[in-house]
Design a protein around this nucleic acid. Structure first.
Lengths: 160, 160
DNA sequence: TATGAAATGTTATTATATAACATGACAGGA
DNA sequence: TCCTGTCATGTTATATAATAACATTTCATA
């Protein structure tokens, strides 16, 4: 359920799925865009734009030394729903349901950096009810919960 | 229900309440801090740190020309629960329940900039249930909904 | 009125993001 | 095949947001 994986298999599957989706939609998952998606999938934590940029530089990729390169790729991936942006931390993380446009709820561990994407429809419902109630037209819903994940809690309890 | 007012009366009342709260808590609502709170209350929209800084400069306040001045005041006001920070826009807005620590839900109009603070306990409940369910310890809850308010929707409908 | 803690002033820098324009890649039509 | 226009990327510069580090001032109270 974590938003970030280290498993190469997961990453490969995600890339294949992205490829398929882009083909269906008639948009181009270029080398650069695929590589950025791969970098995000390969990370155990959500990454900032400049962290991604560093990896591109390590790749020795020409032109990858400038911010617009990575921001444009990120914009594309966001538009296609292949990644999510966490506004509370200015970082980017994978999306587990790229075919299905959605705003998830994100549990973000401030200790280990892990991100857990939830998709609780009840919450979506309540939020929609609330906005409908006051005639507000929703474009983007942001639900981010910051704290400590169970693993880090256990970890710290053990060291007491 | 809007988070920002133009009414001087509202602002004055908020400042008085802030004064009282700070006194009770034994913390100092200094001139600078009070002024920053006043600037935020006086604005019809949520303000960024640098916008607040501009107003301080207009005041002719010495030393108000540097970012740390305003960020420190904002940090204080946030700590005391006198204002909220909207992470999706990097702006600050007033809090309507300064005595009662809470994470609200914010409806942010991308047309007119108005912010509407809701405090739906059901949503809090659901989010808590979700985090409890996976052993996650919540420190901060962020719920921000971006879109268009009813007023702006009507406005644009009228011009069609 | 001394004194220490808290608040503010000040300079510099880091972090995040975009503007603006040049160049390159690539699909579809002549 | 080779134009040609569109989309993608390269490149330089800059805007915007936030903090680090240290100096100075303010203020309650001893």
């Amino acid at each position: 359920m974590n938003s970030c994986r280290t498993s190469t298999a997961d990453t490969q599957q995600a890339l294949t799925q992205a490829e398929t989706l882009c083909q269906q939609r008639g948009v181009r998952l270029t080398d650069l865009r695929r590589r950025v998606l791969e970098i995000i999938w390969s990370s155990t934590t959500a990454l900032g734009a400049y962290a991604i940029l560093d990896v591109l530089r390590e790749d020795g990729r020409q032109g990858a030394s400038a911010p617009p390169t990575v921001y444009r790729a990120l914009d594309f991936l966001l538009e296609q729903g292949l990644i999510h942006r966490l506004v509370s931390l200015n970082v980017f993380t994978v999306c587990h349901q790229p075919g299905n446009p959605h705003n998830g709820q994100f549990l973000i561990c401030q200790d280990c950096g892990h991100v857990n994407e939830m998709n609780n429809l009840e919450i979506d419902h309540l939020l929609r009810a609330e906005t409908d109630g006051c005639g507000f037209e929703t474009r983007t819903r942001i639900v981010e919960i910051l704290g400590r994940c169970s693993k880090c809690l256990e970890e710290s309890a053990r060291h007491d």
